[in-house]
Computed example of a mutant assay.
Amino acid sequence: MRHVALVTLVVDDYDEAIRFYTGPLGFRLAEDEPRPDGSRWVVVEPDALGGVAAGHGTGLLLARAKDEEQRARVGDQTGGRVGFFLHTDDFARDHARMAAAGVTFLEEPRQEPYGTVAVFRDLYGNRWDLLQPAG
C-alpha cells in the first residue's frame, strides 16, 4: 500500500503554527524533534474526530521559512487557490467548533454535489476546504 504521508507547509514560527493547528483546527502534535541545524521536525495531523485513526492520514510537516524567498511563500503556497482539504464526518460540529475558536471562514457553508463545504483560512492565509463528502 502507498499513500502520501506528509505535505510541507512553510510557516513563520513553529510554536505559533503548532498552537493554531492543535487549537482551533483540533489537530494533534505527532512529532516535534530538534534537528542538528537548529530547525525542528514538526508534524501535526488531524485527530480521529473525522473517523480516520490518528497516524493513518496525511500529516503536515510544519517547516519554518529559512530565507526571504521561503518567507515570501508563507500563506500563499498555492497562488491563492484552495490547497488543502480537511475532510470531516460531521460538518456542522467541526464548522461550529472552528468558528467559535476564531477560524476565519471566507463563505457560508454550501451544498455541492460532492458534499458540504466551506472555505477557511489558516493562520497564515492559506485557503482550505472544510468538507464533509457526500454519501
Rank of each mutant, 00 (worst) to 15 (best):
residue 54 A to N: 11
residue 112 E to A: 15
residue 41 W to R: 12
residue 20 F to I: 04
residue 105 F to H: 06
residue 43 V to C: 07
residue 22 T to V: 09
residue 103 V to H: 08
residue 73 R to C: 09
residue 105 F to P: 02
residue 110 R to H: 05
residue 61 L to F: 14
residue 86 L to H: 06
residue 83 G to C: 04
residue 35 R to I: 07
residue 42 V to I: 14
residue 84 F to Y: 15
residue 53 A to E: 13
residue 49 L to P: 08
residue 68 E to N: 14
residue 62 L to R: 00
residue 11 V to S: 03
residue 46 P to Y: 09
residue 108 E to V: 09
residue 40 R to W: 04
residue 45 E to L: 04
residue 133 P to T: 10
residue 117 V to C: 13
residue 113 P to D: 13
residue 13 D to I: 07
residue 133 P to A: 08
residue 56 H to P: 04
residue 70 Q to P: 01
residue 95 H to M: 06
residue 30 A to D: 11
residue 62 L to G: 05
residue 39 S to H: 14
residue 25 L to T: 01
residue 113 P to H: 11
residue 130 L to K: 00
residue 130 L to D: 02
residue 129 D to R: 02
residue 109 P to M: 08
residue 96 A to W: 03
residue 116 T to S: 11
residue 127 R to L: 13
residue 122 D to S: 05
residue 119 V to D: 00
residue 38 G to I: 06
residue 21 Y to C: 01
residue 97 R to D: 07
residue 26 G to K: 06
residue 77 Q to H: 00
residue 107 E to V: 10
residue 41 W to I: 11
residue 55 G to N: 12
residue 131 L to G: 05
residue 129 D to M: 06
residue 112 E to K: 14
residue 105 F to W: 04
residue 135 G to N: 04
residue 120 F to M: 02
residue 69 E to F: 00
residue 20 F to P: 00
residue 44 V to P: 07
residue 64 R to P: 01
residue 41 W to Q: 12
residue 88 T to M: 08
residue 112 E to R: 13
residue 83 G to H: 00
residue 117 V to N: 06
residue 43 V to S: 02
residue 133 P to F: 06
residue 35 R to Q: 15
residue 44 V to N: 05
residue 42 V to Q: 08
residue 40 R to L: 05
